[in-house]
Simulated assay, not measured.
Amino acid sequence: MSTQLGRYAIAGAVAAALYSLIYLIFADKLLPQGEAEFAVVPAFLASLLLSFQLHSRWSFAGHGSRNEKVRLPLRFLVVQAAGLVTNVALTYLVTKVLMEPNWVALPPTLILTPLLTFAAQRIWVFR
Rank of each mutant, 00 (worst) to 15 (best):
Q33G: 12
A13V: 05
Y92E: 08
Q121K: 14
T95D: 00
I123S: 15
T91N: 02
H55G: 00
I22F: 07
V97N: 13
A27E: 10
Q80T: 01
F38W: 12
V41F: 03
V88L: 03
V40P: 07
Q33Y: 12
P32M: 11
V94E: 03
L45D: 02
L77T: 12
S59I: 15
V79Q: 05
P114Q: 06
F60G: 00
A119P: 00
L24P: 04
A120Y: 01
Y23G: 09
A13L: 15
V41H: 00
R127L: 08
T91G: 04
G6E: 02
G6V: 07
R57E: 07
P114M: 06
T3F: 08
S2D: 08
P114W: 07
A13P: 11
F26T: 15
N67D: 13
P73F: 08
N102Y: 00
T109H: 11
P114H: 06
P114D: 05
T95M: 00
F44P: 06
G64E: 04
A82S: 15
P108Q: 10
P107T: 07
Q121M: 15
V78E: 01
G6D: 01
K96M: 11
A46R: 06
V40K: 01
Q53F: 15
L54I: 03
K69C: 06
T117I: 11
A43Y: 00
L116F: 15
F60C: 04
A120I: 11
A15M: 09
L72Y: 08
L115I: 15
A81R: 02
Y19K: 05
L93I: 02
T117R: 09
G62P: 01
R57D: 03
F118Y: 14
A82F: 02
A39K: 02
P32V: 15
A9H: 05
A46N: 09
L30D: 10
E37V: 09
V78C: 12
A105S: 15
R122G: 01
A13S: 14
R122F: 14
L30Y: 12
D28L: 11
L110P: 05
Q53E: 11
Q80K: 09
Y92F: 13
K29T: 11
A13I: 04
A27I: 15
A16V: 00
Y23M: 03
Q4P: 06
A119R: 09
Q121D: 06
V104C: 03
R71K: 12
R127S: 09
A43W: 00
Q53R: 13
A9T: 06
L98N: 13
G34D: 08
L54G: 01
L106H: 10
L45N: 03
I111R: 13
P107F: 10
A120H: 05
W103D: 04
L110N: 10
V40G: 12
A61S: 09
A89N: 03
V104N: 00
S56M: 06
P42C: 14
F60K: 01
L18D: 06
A39D: 14
F126S: 00
L21N: 01
R71Q: 09
M1Q: 06
T95K: 01
F44Y: 14
L31H: 08
L45Q: 02
Y19L: 09
F118R: 09
S47M: 07
R57S: 11
I111N: 13
A17R: 03
